[in-house]
Design a protein around this nucleic acid. Structure first.
Lengths: 224, 224
DNA sequence: CGGGTCTGACGAACGGAGTTCGTCACGAAC
DNA sequence: GTTCGTGACGAACTCCGTTCGTCAGACCCG
């Protein structure tokens, strides 16, 4: 199995390792082969090196995934056109989209205050938009918190959906059957409202609209 | 290290294994020792058996965690007093609370349509409350979707917070320092709005209020 | 131009995880 | 008392993240 050792001089020149190429390679592996395949060994293999070499540039697997997340967030398009509410909605939608394109990445963002440079760029942009819209500072701050939470959650949900084995239609049909079979006395609504529960429509856009409308209707009350 | 084999007759009578005791033991281990300690081996050890024995009642670790999640959701108190909006807010808050009490459990709920019996009970209750409030079916269905997403996300965030090593104050101080050190030209808001960004107050309750207000202000538009 | 030093890459190994397989002890049935 | 089936379980397999010690190559100084 072992190829005999080849002088490094003899084999084709190799691009030097760096944090950046490791992170980008990680994203490639994640997108091409899924979350389960995202192991230190696999990433190293693609880079034609050993897993141990990665640890010079990356603290551990969590650190790598956090870096990958921020790299993905760096690709979010920042909107410039439209009213401030339209810009906000587009920015949120773009962020969800960016996260949902990489299985499992959104999960690492959950439960942590964002500290990545690109994540903070998105946050800063949101705060600017709120300021343009005349929203007071405290409400804007709390709103960005809430929106970031929604972005990670919706991103994770979308990603899970994109990666599912079954087609959405098959999966929905199965769940719907399960709902219908529940005891009607304990689950009166779930068994009855099938049509509404599974109705089609742009739920993602609606959710963002709900958040924006709700924020505008609800002032924050900081404790002094 | 190995104790010599003892006849099972000789050692104290053991409660028989069952899916239920395994799930409850899993929750105990999770709460007492954290997510990292929640291994099949550890759960089996607490039950004084081998890991292989668990697989008779549980498909795999994911199945176990899903069952633990539903068990946790079974302990959500369903409110009965107050206006429908108050009931809704309390129910959402109680659900977040239940999830946040067990590190990492909320993460398994993310990205999946709820199918557990107790999860569906909570959903059914929400739908009933919306119906009492005169919300149309489609909006109610989409709203429950959104609220469930928020519950899982907020639960995960709270749980991560509860389990952090540093005290909240220390952690916030550190992040705040980091924010302040960012280049002001690229991050004008983040560097400036520290006071607002870290302002205290009941953000969780505010977030729920935002969602409810937003839902009432935003009709769903299903595609026929 | 040559030798010494220093840095980064890497093979091998460690501990521990999830899961599977074959065996065996126990209780019930006849 | 013998047989039989069910469920518990020990051991092993594979693969993971991570660490340690070694070594080749690049660079610098004389």
């Amino acid at each position: 199995m072992n190829a005999e050792p080849v002088s490094r001089r003899a084999r084709p020149a190799k691009a030097p390792l760096s944090r950046d190429v490791i992170v980008r390679t990680g994203l490639e592996v994640l997108d091409r082969e899924g979350l389960d395949a995202l192991t230190m060994r696999r990433v190293a293999q693609v880079l034609d090196t050993g897993a141990a070499s990665l640890y010079v540039y990356v603290e551990n697997r969590d650190d790598l995934m956090a870096a990958m997340l921020d790299e993905a967030l760096g690709r979010v398009a920042l909107p410039t056109d439209g009213s401030w509410q339209e810009q906000l909605q587009t920015l949120v939608a773009n962020s969800i989209d960016a996260m949902s394109r990489h299985e499992g990445l959104a999960l690492v963002a959950l439960g942590g205050i964002p500290t990545g440079l690109n994540a903070l760029l998105v946050m800063d942009r949101m705060l600017t938009i709120f300021k343009e819209g005349g929203v007071d500072d405290t409400t804007a701050a709390w709103a960005v918190d809430l929106l970031y939470l929604h972005i990670t959650a919706a991103g994770a949900e979308q990603a899970a959906y994109n990666t599912r084995k079954l087609t959405p239609a098959e999966h929905i049909a199965e769940v719907r059957r399960r709902y219908a079979e529940l005891p009607a006395d304990r689950y009166p609504m779930v068994t009855t409202m099938g049509d509404a529960l599974f109705s089609a429509g742009d739920r993602d856009r609606w959710a963002i609209q709900v958040l924006v409308n709700g924020i505008l209707a609800t002032a924050a009350h900081p404790v002094p």
